[in-house]
Design a protein around this nucleic acid. Structure first.
Lengths: 328, 328
DNA sequence: CTGAAAGCGCTTACAG
DNA sequence: CTGAAAGCGCTTACAG
């Protein structure tokens, strides 16, 4: 049961492959091919259940209509929604997606990037875990259209979409003060070199009133619950009364901890980066800094397509979107 | 800046493309190619930053090492985790994934399937929204290796992986009775023709003691909150004292509703299909029927690869995995 | 030990 | 209005 090819259609109709190709690609009129012939081709193609071989086509025209997407972890609510937004926009514009996760593993990220390039993707949307901008420089040299999302590299000339992380964090901390909080601490996640995280930390440090009393916890990303529990036991008995969480994973771990040590949170206000639906359902109340996820995804796709379509011209754009405070 | 091809390496070394191809595919020793020549080829390939063109390769060998995955919605916790499990196993075995969402849109599902076939995927993992098995029959005729996950079609001879939905639902309802519940109702989701959902409903109906008092709500999948609110207001004042939710989306809507009408839930026990992390963090307590998501994903991938490797032989396998009751 | 050649299925100048 | 031919970059018998 071999697949049907252009030649099969051509032979059974007594015309050339070229003609069939032209008709099926909608260039029949433009090339003045007999209406009747065109119709016969289309009918026969349908009858034989013809499916063009995209590999042959890709080889010939050098385009694959496929976009690669690499994120840390698609099962994280933020990246899940981001991928959904990217997928919808890409689909609308006729592109398929190859999605992969790095789980913050730099080696895996390197391998994935090579894999995707091997597969001749037309472009790449990347939320990178790299600590080193040199890795990306290589990618850029490779001439693959690239847009960074969520996590960016200031020093590199690469298109990117992200939110104003520092300002968002400042907004969060100021909100805590507004609620009467005196000593807000920051629960951050490591690795800290990720731009989004480091910016949020900067925001905390810049907004905190008494820098000497500022407290910053670095929770390892692969042992979040453990780290959060540790931090909380360290804080117990001190005069902290507010927590700024740099992302939703931290906030979830705090929620989990709160189920066994509810007392600790009676007089503690919490605000977290990332708005996730859980926050609507739980106690203690967690306010949040919401990111415009759909807009991030849509922007990333359209910037990437722009970049693909006119590679040479076109200056670098580093788009920064605003966050929204959601009070609870 | 053209991409480097086999020919470039061959020319610059004064050997043939064939030799370069052989060496780079690790067949140098097997074909007895001079160790020294092999080394020169590898060094040169690295130096020129050679990346093989997978489209040319795919065209030639008829394999793409790519698996298509179609799910209703990757931003749903269940499918997000399922995709993660699939991705990890596929990556381990050297395959990439093309992931797409249908959002329960049958037309989109049809188009996506055609798209993926056009892209010459080696196989497809599908959680289908089809109400009609004929759609899938077409796919099967097309000879694309296929494994159904989560949602299956009893009547079709297609490999599949799912859990024992009916038994899981029975377990859930029996658990409610064990807690002293007298009148458990069922919150289901429509469309009801989805196998997983219909099986869970069957389970509820078979486990419920007083069939005359059994109550089944069909909540439309695209207006869940609204439907749940409506159902709850209908139930208010009746003697219902237990809810079985057919999936996590329903349970989340109930949680949301509970924040404004907490009183309603004081004497109502809840159990839901799908175990999601929120359940650890909220009130009212929600027990759950957990699915072995990782195992579903891993099984799907290995069954698919099996199927790809020996298409003709190999009988159909409909794998059913067990669920676990998680009491809260 | 190595090379020349065919061919995967398509698209696109070119020719008539 | 239509066809013959080249060529995208690779792999794999075949020949020596």
């Amino acid at each position: 049961m071999k697949k049907v090819s252009l030649k099969d259609i051509a032979d059974s109709l007594g015309v050339s492959k070229a003609l069939v190709s032209l008709v099926l690609n909608g260039k029949g009129d433009e090339r003045g091919i007999n209406k009747n012939t065109q119709e016969r081709v289309r009918v026969k193609a349908k009858e034989l259940n013809y499916v063009p071989n995209q590999y042959a086509r890709g080889l010939r025209v050098g385009r694959t209509d496929t976009i690669g997407v690499i994120v840390p972890d698609i099962s994280n609510a933020f990246y899940g929604k981001l991928c959904k937004a990217i997928e919808q926009e890409a689909y609308r514009k006729g592109f398929n997606l190859i999605i992969s996760n790095t789980y913050e593993d730099v080696q895996k990220e390197k391998k994935l990037i090579t894999d995707l390039i091997n597969r001749n993707i037309d472009g790449l949307i990347l939320a990178s875990s790299f600590d080193n901008k040199n890795e990306l420089q290589g990618l850029k040299d490779n001439d693959v259209p690239l847009v960074l999302v969520d996590r960016v590299f200031e020093e590199l000339d690469i298109d990117s979409v992200a939110v104003s992380n520092k300002e968002g964090a400042e907004k969060a901390v100021e909100f805590l003060y507004g609620l009467g909080v005196k000593n807000p601490v920051c629960f951050s996640i490591s690795p800290v070199y990720i731009s989004s995280i480091s910016e949020r930390i900067k925001g905390y440090l810049s907004a905190v009133k008494d820098v000497d009393k500022a407290k910053l916890f670095q929770i390892p990303h692969d042992r979040i619950q453990e780290g959060v529990n540790l931090a909380l036991s360290e804080l117990r008995g001190t005069d902290f009364d507010g927590i700024f969480c740099v992302n939703n994973s931290i906030a979830k771990a705090i929620l989990k901890a709160s189920s066994t040590q509810n007392d600790l949170f009676e007089h503690v206000k919490i605000v977290s980066f990332d708005d996730i639906e859980i926050f609507d359902l739980v106690n203690p109340k967690i306010s949040s800094i919401a990111q415009p996820i759909d807009e991030i995804g849509t922007s990333a796709v359209s910037m990437l397509i722009d970049r693909m379509e006119n590679k040479e011209t076109h200056t670098i754009e580093k788009r920064i979107l605003e966050t929204t405070l959601i009070e609870r």
